[in-house]
Simulated scan of single mutants.
Amino acid sequence: MLSRRTLLAALLASVAAPTAAFSPAADTIPLWPMGVPGAGAALPVEQVVERSKVAGHMDRAVSGIAAPRMVVFRPERPDGSAMLICPGGGYRRVVIDREGFEAARWLAVRGVTAFVLFYRLPAEGWTTGADTPLIDAQRAIRTIRARAGAFGLDPARIGVMGFSAGGHLAADLAARFALVAQPPVDAIDNLSARPLLAAPIYPVIAMDGPLAHAGSRERLIGADASAERARAHDPSANVPADAPPHILIHAEDDLAVPPGNSLRLREALKARGIAVETHLFETGGHGFGLAPGKPAGAWPELFIAFARAHGL
């Protein structure tokens, strides 16, 4: 018989599980092994909340990430390609299962080595502020590139995928991969952070006007941010001439992040002459992930076809 105290302890453990619950240490790569830059007076405390309403189907959200890292999903037969996956969560948390591990497993079955990014959240006291997630994403691409030999990867065949606010991060990386947001700390930081291609999935793009997702905007740049600051963190306003090809996925009935966000980025990419493929599904809402069994569930195969066409 379990005591009431034992049951309570088990419940608390499931709500605030330790980092090690995600993956064995051998499958986890710290981004900053010599110390995380940009720390404020106090580090956030990592918290994990299980939100699933379906038995046997995990849906964990992580906040307070003080040790940014990647969890690696290695295929049985790696084809030399890699994808960095940036889960969403409105820059308030990182939705690690539905928009991270599930996509990583799907890619690994198809030969792609997948790296799920646990990135720092910008409103949790980091001195680098709104650029904090971008700094981690840049470092992640560079770390994958630096370790390509160990994973049997072609360092030129590394892409990025992101969902919702993670889609913003993926698009931001594809736009500002060359930004020096902090001084280099080692030789890894001298490698290119440019991805071969980018796949923002129902992404937050706009930081102003009716298209903006209020929660992401507030936590990234502040509710009262100036027009100049909003523009600096809008990927559609910062597309460089050497941006990578993009595939954009959105649902027409997305009420949280309107599909106009993807269309705004598409227009900016087209204006720069950057290859872009866009798929708008009639239904799907927001946060559909892989969307198995639903019309929007066609997008992963569309992504694979796009990735093959562009060398991944």
Rank of each mutant, 00 (worst) to 15 (best):
G38W: 09
E301N: 15
I304M: 15
P24K: 12
F115P: 00
R219N: 14
A256M: 12
M58A: 15
G38K: 13
A243S: 09
A114D: 02
A123Y: 00
L196S: 10
R194E: 00
H168Q: 11
I304N: 00
R4C: 11
L7I: 12
R110A: 15
L117W: 01
L290P: 08
V185T: 04
K294G: 08
D59I: 05
S262Y: 11
D186K: 15
E301D: 13
A108D: 02
I65G: 04
W106R: 07
R176E: 03
R110V: 11
W126Q: 01
T127A: 15
G149K: 14
R145N: 12
L43V: 07
H310I: 15
V204I: 09
R139Y: 14
P183N: 05
A243D: 00
L290S: 11
I201S: 02
D27R: 11
Q138H: 13
A256W: 00
L211M: 02
M70Y: 12
G35Q: 08
F163K: 06
P300Q: 12
P244F: 15
A39V: 14
R110Q: 15
G287N: 10
A39T: 14
S236D: 02
G56R: 12
P292W: 07
D253W: 10
A41L: 12
H250V: 08
N261K: 11
N261H: 13
F303W: 08
A309F: 05
P184D: 04
I141Y: 07
G297D: 06
A123N: 09
P78W: 13
D189L: 10
E46N: 13
T6M: 14
I65K: 05
P122N: 05
A237R: 14
Q47F: 11
H168D: 03
A140K: 11
R176G: 08
T283D: 00
G167W: 01
V276M: 06
A193N: 00
L169M: 02
G159R: 09
A271Y: 05
H57F: 10
S192K: 09
L134K: 07
I205S: 03
S164R: 03
M34V: 12
A275Q: 04
Q47S: 13
I201P: 00
L121S: 02
P200N: 10
W299Y: 04
R145G: 12
L280F: 13
L269W: 03
G88I: 05
Y91T: 05
I188L: 09
R176Y: 06
L7S: 01
D253E: 02
A170Q: 04
R120I: 02
L8G: 00
R194H: 05
L302S: 03
P300R: 08
P30T: 13
L265M: 08
T283Q: 10
L121R: 02
A175K: 06
D242P: 15
G162N: 03
C86T: 04
G215P: 00
V72P: 13
W32L: 13
R308P: 04
S226M: 06
A237L: 09
V239Q: 06
Q47H: 14
R266V: 13
H57V: 14
L84Q: 06
D253V: 08
F151C: 10
L280P: 07
V239D: 02
D79F: 12
R266I: 09
G215Y: 01
P240Q: 07
A61H: 07
V45I: 15
R92C: 14
